[in-house]
């Protein structure tokens, strides 16, 4: 997976944590979509540095009408997207949202989003703080997307 320089730097240095939340988001990115796309996908790694399981209830953004967590499942050659009702991250664990796996479904962008743009996502942890994540829009250019995280660690 080749990412352009600036986007790559943004990925590496976007380590966002709210002071009162045990959750840390790294490598967030939104896949740049073809013009006019009604749904985009966002990916990231969410780590829980706390001692309890963390649950993300809702995710919102001023730039999208609605956001859901989905998981892509390929079973017997058929791809399905299954909504994930509550995204849970075990104590001292992490969850990777990545192409072909779990991802955020960003419905109805309110403005055109191109590579170089960035979007604020608000992850609302149940009974806890809201984490604000600044997520860059990145254009994918190659095919080995499943190895995305491994290549850049």
């Amino acid at each position: 997976m080749k990412l352009k320089g600036i986007a790559l730097l943004t990925l590496f240095y976007s380590l966002i944590a709210a002071a009162d939340s045990p959750l840390v988001v790294t490598e967030p990115w939104i896949r740049e979509a073809p013009p006019g796309a009604g749904v985009l996908a966002a990916y990231m790694v969410i780590s829980n540095r706390g001692t309890d399981t963390a649950t993300i209830g809702t995710i919102e953004s001023p730039d999208f009408k609605r956001i859901e967590v989905h998981r892509t499942l390929v079973e017997e050659g058929v791809a399905r997207m299954v909504p994930v009702e509550a995204l849970q991250i075990a104590a001292a664990g992490q969850v990777a949202l990545e192409p072909g796996g779990m991802h955020l479904m960003l419905y109805h962008p309110k403005r055109p989003l191109r590579e170089g743009d960035s979007v604020t996502l608000e992850l609302q942890q149940s009974d806890a703080a809201c984490i604000r994540v600044n997520v860059p829009v990145v254009r994918m250019t190659a095919d080995d997307t499943a190895d995305h995280h491994h290549h850049h660690h």
Binding site: R31, G38, A41, M81, M105, L106, M140, D143
Partner: peptide
């Protein structure tokens, strides 16, 4: 086209 994960990945 309303498929944001599998379809863009496959077209890439």
């Amino acid at each position: 086209t309303h498929c944001p994960d599998v379809c863009p990945t496959t077209l890439s």
